[in-house]
């Protein structure tokens, strides 16, 4: 064992890591201090009604630490516990963190959200829906006070439902190839619209539409990270000082970006058609490129390069 504190943390897969492993590897060694740690037992009061086990942190880890010696606030969802869902306690922990960032200028002005969530926890749906609404409002208000909120998407559960909405309100979004984001997840679309509309078992289809590479190409994410803790750390450090101010200019630019996108891609029926419309010479190869070759394609691509969000 070379480094007892961070055994191979840099090369560990983000996708396969737990929320706590991601935080430990992402932040400067020994810098993480947790708010409402597991010893406080802030866990769901509702799951026992359904004979379901609770978690001591309700699947949400919040706290502060340092990233490249910069002070940051952090929140990480545990995607393996109940799909990383927004519920009464997990939601309140995140809302509390964001409101503290909004209200207390002495706290770090950067918030990192390590999203890994299918959305609202159905067993606590009303509290979860309220939590998502409060999280989005708190992010927007915090940004209005100059706080930079960065979403990191690369976990097993992706960022769907309320987590997809939450990501879309952030200053910046970092995503990996394994990361997926959207509002309605593949199974939800299939259930409501039929398998002809979207086959959730077709993994190539699911990833080509919701996956990190397509989101990056379309401008749905601002940075592409390799699936390692170091990959996410480097991507966040590169973005941290370039987040846009939350003002009318940025909002108008975002509106223009989205209008351009629907004009350019609105008639497309598949991800490959969109990549053709974006001017990518060999769209069929996108899935097979390595990370470095993919990064080359992203450079200067219309829709991927802009100053908005």
């Amino acid at each position: 064992m070379t480094d007892p504190k961070h055994p191979s943390a840099d090369t560990a897969s983000w996708f396969l890591s737990t929320a706590r492993e991601r935080l430990t590897g992402l932040l400067d060694p020994g810098s993480f201090a947790e708010f409402l740690p597991p010893t406080e037992r802030a866990q769901s009061p509702h799951l026992a009604l359904f004979d379901l086990p609770a978690a001591f942190d309700d699947g949400m880890v919040v706290g502060r630490g340092r990233l490249g010696r910069r002070a940051v606030l952090v929140a990480a969802q545990e995607g393996q516990f109940m799909g990383g869902t927004f519920a009464e306690v997990s939601g309140a922990k995140l809302v509390g963190l964001l409101r503290a960032a909004r209200d207390d200028p002495k706290l770090p002005r950067i918030v990192l959200l390590l999203l890994d969530s299918g959305g609202v926890r159905l067993q606590e749906a009303n509290a979860g829906e309220l939590a998502v609404a409060e999280v989005m409002r708190a992010i927007v208000e915090a940004r209005g006070f100059g706080v930079t909120v960065i979403a990191l998407v690369g976990g097993r559960a992706g960022a769907f439902g309320g987590a997809g909405l939450t990501a879309a309100t952030c200053s910046r979004i970092v995503i990996s190839e394994q990361g997926r984001t959207g509002v309605s997840g593949p199974e939800v679309i299939e259930t409501n619209k039929g398998v002809e509309e979207f086959d959730s078992q077709d993994k190539a289809l699911v990833w080509s539409v919701t996956g990190g590479r397509n989101r990056r190409l379309l401008g749905g994410a601002d940075a592409y990270a390799g699936d390692t803790v170091a990959g996410f750390r480097d991507a966040v450090l590169a973005l941290i000082d370039r987040a846009p101010p939350f003002d009318l200019v940025t909002l108008r630019a975002e509106q223009r970006r989205l209008a351009d996108r629907i004009e350019c891609l609105g008639a497309c029926n598949s991800a490959v058609e969109m990549w053709v419309a974006l001017g990518i010479a060999e769209p069929q190869t996108i899935r097979n490129l390595d990370d470095a070759a993919f990064a080359e394609i992203v450079k200067g691509l219309r829709g991927a390069a802009y100053e908005a969000r």
Binding site: T18, R20, P37, P38, T39, Q80
Partner: peptide, 14 residues
């Protein structure tokens, strides 16, 4: 003072 290992996921425990 304290430690937490594992996650509450199917076939697992914390």
């Amino acid at each position: 003072g304290s430690a937490l290992v594992g996650v509450v996921a199917s076939g697992n425990l914390e």
